[in-house]
Simulated scan of single mutants.
Amino acid sequence: MHILRLCDRPWRSQRQRSLSLLLTISLTTLLVPPSLAQTPAIPSPSNAPLELDLLTKPKDYVITANTINPERLTVPSLWWAKQNSETKLLDNWIAYPASEKEPARVDLIVNQQIWSLLDYVDRYDFVNRLGSTARNFGYNIRVFNYQKEPLATYTCNFNTSPALCSIQTAVKNKIGLERLL
C-alpha cells in the first residue's frame, strides 16, 4: 500500500512510476509462493514396514500373487505383467487397500539376484511398467527384496487428472550402501 501511495503522487515522473511498479511486481513474484493449484504435490512413499509374513499367512484385506478371486477380477491385477515378462524378476506382491492413513499400495518383492544384474535403465523400466499397471487400479508401488531393503517406489497423486507420479530408485553410494533418490 505504501508503494502505491508513492506512485500516485503527481511529482513522480512516469519513469519513476514504472520503476516502482516493476520493483513491486518483482518483489511480489519472489515473495509469494505458487499456489497449490499450480504445483500439486506428489505424496511421499509409504514408510510402513514390509510385512513378508502376509505372503504365507494373508489376511482378508490383502492380495498376494497367490490370491485368486474365482468370482471377479482381483484388483490390482499384476498376474498378466508377471506372466508376460517378469516371471524371473517379480517373485510376489502384497497389495494393501486404501486406508484412512494411506492410499492403496502394492509392495513388490523381487529376486535380488536378477535385480542386481539390471542396470539403472532396466530397473526404471520395470518400476515404470508395473507402476503404470498399478496406477490404473489406483495403487502406488514399492519394490523390495526378501531382505526387506527398499529398492524403488512409484508414487502418485491420484487427486489430479491425470495422476501425477514420481519414480524413485535406490542408488549405491561410494561405499556400496543403497538409498532411495
Rank of each mutant, 00 (worst) to 15 (best):
L118S: 12
L118G: 07
L118Y: 14
L118R: 12
D119F: 13
Y120V: 13
Y120K: 14
D122M: 07
D122P: 00
D122L: 05
D122G: 04
R123W: 04
R123H: 10
Y124K: 07
Y124G: 01
D125C: 00
D125M: 00
F126G: 02
V127G: 05
V127P: 02
N128T: 13
R129M: 11
L130C: 01
G131V: 10
G131Y: 04
G131Q: 05
S132I: 04
S132H: 09
S132N: 15
S132G: 15
S132P: 00
S132Y: 05
T133G: 00
T133N: 06
T133D: 04
A134S: 11
R135P: 00
N136W: 14
F137G: 06
G138T: 10
G138W: 07
G138H: 08
Y139C: 11
Y139T: 14
Y139K: 11
I141D: 02
I141V: 12
I141K: 04
I141L: 13
R142V: 01
R142W: 03
V143L: 03
V143A: 03
V143T: 12
F144M: 04
N145A: 11
Y146H: 14
Q147N: 14
Q147G: 11
Q147Y: 08
K148Q: 14
E149F: 04
P150I: 13
P150G: 01
P150D: 01
P150F: 00
P150L: 05
L151I: 09
L151D: 04
A152F: 02
A152S: 05
A152E: 02
T153G: 09
T153A: 11
T153Y: 06
Y154R: 07
T155R: 09
T155E: 10
T155Q: 14
